[in-house]
Amino acid sequence: MNEPQKEWTNKSIITEINDRNLMWTELQNNPEREDLREKFITKRHKIMKLIRETKNSYYKKEFDKYSGKPKKLWNLLNILTNNKFKQRCAPPKLIVNSIEVTDPHEICNIFNKFFATIGPYLADEIPIQFHVN
């Protein structure tokens, strides 16, 4: 049984997948037939290419449809990347100097302070012979 259909799936893809599956069954029943193996591999590559092209076309249309609509575009990106972070982006707790911090705003402030000051700190750690004049 095939996995649930995606938005970009169409009748052509389903037909090709069903044909490929029939070829696979036939190949399993006749593993010595090299001609069946070659036909199956050719069909499999054809389907992979068809799926890739169909997905690319579908998502390009989706991106074009949402250009100028940042919220909908970000929703689409989150779906494509399987991004499960919705509300919370800070970790639930952070340990700094042996102190556990759980307040999300304080965690964000700690990260902000770290990233705002790490550049100059790292620059000071570069040996003098590597400095650019």
Score class of each variant (00 low, 15 high):
residue 1 M to W: 08
residue 3 E to W: 04
residue 6 K to S: 11
residue 10 N to F: 00
residue 12 S to K: 13
residue 20 R to V: 04
residue 20 R to S: 03
residue 22 L to S: 11
residue 26 E to H: 08
residue 27 L to H: 05
residue 27 L to S: 04
residue 28 Q to D: 03
residue 30 N to M: 06
residue 30 N to Q: 12
residue 30 N to R: 07
residue 30 N to P: 00
residue 31 P to D: 05
residue 32 E to T: 12
residue 33 R to P: 00
residue 35 D to P: 01
residue 35 D to L: 00
residue 38 E to A: 09
residue 39 K to C: 03
residue 40 F to Q: 02
residue 43 K to R: 04
residue 44 R to G: 01
residue 44 R to F: 00
residue 45 H to G: 03
residue 46 K to C: 00
residue 49 K to I: 07
residue 49 K to Y: 08
residue 52 R to E: 14
residue 52 R to K: 13
residue 53 E to S: 12
residue 54 T to H: 02
residue 55 K to C: 00
residue 56 N to A: 10
residue 56 N to G: 13
residue 58 Y to F: 15
residue 60 K to T: 14
residue 62 E to G: 02
residue 62 E to K: 10
residue 63 F to G: 03
residue 65 K to V: 01
residue 67 S to H: 14
residue 68 G to V: 02
residue 68 G to P: 02
residue 69 K to E: 15
residue 70 P to F: 02
residue 74 W to V: 15
residue 80 L to C: 04
residue 86 K to F: 11
residue 87 Q to E: 14
residue 87 Q to L: 14
residue 89 C to F: 14
residue 91 P to T: 05
residue 94 L to T: 05
residue 95 I to R: 06
residue 96 V to W: 06
residue 96 V to L: 11
residue 98 S to F: 05
residue 101 V to Q: 06
residue 102 T to V: 07
residue 103 D to W: 04
residue 105 H to Q: 13
residue 109 N to R: 09
residue 109 N to D: 13
residue 110 I to L: 09
residue 111 F to C: 06
residue 111 F to D: 11
residue 112 N to H: 12
residue 113 K to L: 07
residue 114 F to Y: 15
residue 115 F to W: 10
residue 116 A to V: 07
residue 118 I to V: 13
residue 118 I to M: 08
residue 122 L to A: 13
residue 122 L to N: 10
residue 124 D to W: 05
residue 127 P to E: 07
residue 128 I to N: 13
residue 129 Q to A: 08
residue 130 F to C: 09
residue 131 H to N: 14
residue 132 V to F: 12
